[in-house]
Simulated scan of single mutants.
Amino acid sequence: MVGSSLTDDERKTANTRLKVGFVVLVAASMGLMALQVDPTPLQLAVVIAVGLVVGVGLLWFVLRNLADYRSSLR
C-alpha cells in the first residue's frame, strides 16, 4: 500500500495554512462587502476585525462537526 507523501511536519504546516487562509478569506470577504457602502477607515478596520472573529468561529464550528463526522464513520 502506498503511504502519504507528506511528513507529519509538512501535514501540520499545510493544515495550519489552510486554517489561516480560511479565516483570512472570511475577513477579507466581509471587508470587501463593507467597501460597497463607502465606510471610513475605522469602520473598515472594525468590519475586518469582526470578520476575523467570525472566521475563527466558523473554523471552530467546521472542525468540530468534521471531528464528529469522522468519529461516526469509525
Rank of each mutant, 00 (worst) to 15 (best):
residue 23 V to T: 03
residue 10 E to D: 02
residue 74 R to F: 05
residue 63 L to G: 00
residue 14 A to M: 15
residue 19 K to Q: 12
residue 66 L to Q: 12
residue 66 L to M: 05
residue 60 W to Y: 11
residue 36 Q to D: 05
residue 71 S to C: 02
residue 7 T to F: 03
residue 68 D to H: 11
residue 5 S to N: 06
residue 38 D to S: 07
residue 49 A to G: 11
residue 36 Q to G: 14
residue 74 R to Y: 00
residue 30 M to K: 06
residue 43 Q to F: 08
residue 52 L to E: 05
residue 65 N to W: 04
residue 24 V to F: 08
residue 4 S to Y: 05
residue 31 G to W: 10
residue 12 K to E: 11
residue 53 V to C: 06
residue 59 L to C: 02
residue 61 F to P: 01
residue 72 S to H: 12
residue 52 L to T: 06
residue 61 F to A: 14
residue 46 V to C: 03
residue 29 S to F: 15
residue 28 A to Q: 09
residue 45 A to N: 04
residue 20 V to W: 03
residue 47 V to E: 05
residue 2 V to R: 06
residue 15 N to E: 14
residue 71 S to P: 00
residue 41 P to H: 03
residue 18 L to G: 13
residue 4 S to V: 11
residue 6 L to P: 07
residue 30 M to Q: 13
residue 17 R to W: 12
residue 69 Y to W: 15
residue 44 L to F: 07
residue 47 V to G: 12
residue 20 V to G: 02
residue 43 Q to S: 11
residue 36 Q to H: 06
residue 73 L to H: 04
residue 13 T to C: 06
residue 39 P to Q: 04
residue 3 G to I: 03
residue 70 R to M: 09
residue 52 L to G: 10
residue 52 L to W: 07
residue 36 Q to M: 12
residue 74 R to H: 04
residue 21 G to M: 05
residue 67 A to V: 15
residue 55 G to C: 01
residue 4 S to E: 10
residue 12 K to W: 06
residue 10 E to N: 01
residue 15 N to P: 05
residue 51 G to I: 06
residue 48 I to C: 08
residue 66 L to F: 02
residue 47 V to P: 02
residue 65 N to K: 05
residue 46 V to Y: 07
residue 45 A to V: 04
residue 32 L to S: 09
residue 35 L to D: 05
residue 20 V to I: 13
residue 54 V to F: 01
residue 51 G to P: 01
residue 67 A to Y: 10
residue 5 S to P: 10
residue 9 D to Y: 09
residue 17 R to E: 15
residue 45 A to H: 02
residue 46 V to P: 01
residue 57 G to E: 02
residue 30 M to G: 12
residue 4 S to R: 03
residue 37 V to G: 06
residue 68 D to N: 09
residue 3 G to Y: 07
residue 56 V to R: 02
residue 28 A to M: 10
residue 57 G to N: 03
residue 2 V to A: 10
residue 16 T to P: 00
residue 18 L to V: 15
residue 18 L to W: 14
residue 41 P to L: 12
residue 1 M to G: 15
residue 53 V to H: 03
residue 12 K to M: 09
residue 28 A to T: 15
residue 38 D to C: 01
residue 37 V to F: 04
residue 4 S to Q: 11
residue 21 G to N: 07
residue 43 Q to G: 14
residue 8 D to K: 08
residue 73 L to G: 01
residue 4 S to N: 08
residue 14 A to G: 03
residue 54 V to H: 01
residue 10 E to C: 04
residue 6 L to E: 12
residue 24 V to I: 12
residue 69 Y to D: 14
residue 50 V to A: 13
residue 9 D to H: 11
residue 46 V to L: 14
residue 68 D to V: 13
residue 70 R to S: 08
residue 56 V to N: 00
residue 7 T to M: 01
residue 43 Q to L: 13
residue 62 V to C: 07
residue 72 S to K: 15
residue 71 S to K: 13
residue 45 A to I: 04
residue 41 P to R: 04
residue 62 V to A: 07
residue 16 T to Q: 12
residue 33 M to H: 06
residue 43 Q to Y: 08
